[in-house]
Amino acid sequence: MSSAQTAPLEGRVALVVGGAGRLGREICRILADRGAIVAVGYRGSEDAARALAAEIDGLAVRIDVNDDDAIDRAFARVEAERGSVTVVVDTAHVESHPRAVADLDREFLGEHLAAVQGFAAVARRALPGMRDAGWGRFVYVSGALMSRPYAGFSAYGAAKAAATTLTRYLAAEEGRAGVTANIVAPGRVFDPADELDETRRELSDMLLARTALGEFPTAAQIAATVADLTTSSHLTGQTVWITGGEPIIA
């Protein structure tokens, strides 16, 4: 087997926003396994990010997507220490508490939509280096709630839908520069250690009954799909649903 097959991302520098989270950690590990130099982007989990970076011979870098200066500092550090970023995976999201549309206020909705602006700001900063390289990969981690409504999660779903649409436009506008942009949309991510409140337990039970496979995907399985999209040369503007076979009306 050739080195290109065993390490398809050899020499590529990848930034994983939200890299210290449960799914982010698995994404960082599999990108490193495929040869990438990984920057673990974190905002509040510095110890976890540094431990993971040491494990995968990567770099822990603080990045606040709501602050353009902080984004620039993060990229500048990665560029100075590891090279130009040509892979961006965004797993960041706002921890949502159920709230009906009738009870939404500007502040609550704005906190969720800020993540969309953050993804756009990260993309804006990454694109010049990708264009110069003639190669770039974006993967945005969305969620099934953007297309499968469940009462109380309108702000989260609206933000994910907006960022998903932005990613598709990114694909349309940057493809001729060698840049692809795709979306991974998980449903429920299986973790036996999860402690769910009543609303999330009801949602989980309902979703499990709808799955074709009878089980939810794990974080490692979702991460593998993310990694596959970073190595594909022909997929762009696509949404990959990872739900265990739950039917989604997109």
Rank of each mutant, 00 (worst) to 15 (best):
L109M: 13
G143C: 10
S2T: 15
T225C: 05
G129K: 14
P247S: 12
V184L: 04
N182R: 02
R12Y: 05
E79P: 06
E173I: 11
D64M: 01
L203A: 12
F216Y: 12
G134S: 04
L59A: 06
P247A: 10
G152K: 02
A100G: 11
V139N: 03
G214P: 07
L196K: 07
A102N: 06
A114M: 11
E174N: 13
D194W: 14
Q5A: 15
V94T: 15
S45L: 13
G187K: 05
F153M: 11
A48S: 14
D69E: 15
V17N: 07
A161F: 01
A193T: 15
P149W: 02
P98T: 06
G157W: 04
G136C: 07
T6K: 15
G24K: 11
R99S: 12
A181D: 03
A133T: 12
N182S: 08
A219K: 03
V13N: 11
A121Q: 03
M130Y: 03
V139H: 02
A162V: 10
D191Q: 05
T91I: 12
P128D: 10
A100P: 01
N66F: 11
Y140R: 03
R176P: 10
A36C: 08
G11W: 09
L15Y: 03
R29D: 09
E173L: 07
A250G: 05
E246G: 00
R200M: 14
R22L: 14
G237V: 04
I30Q: 04
V94P: 05
V141Q: 04
T91G: 09
R22S: 13
P98I: 05
T91V: 15
S204R: 12
G244M: 01
T239Y: 03
R34G: 06
E246M: 12
V85Y: 09
R25S: 12
T218K: 04
A14N: 08
V240K: 00
F153S: 09
E79D: 15
Q117H: 12
A181K: 07
D68R: 15
W241M: 04
R62I: 09
T225A: 12
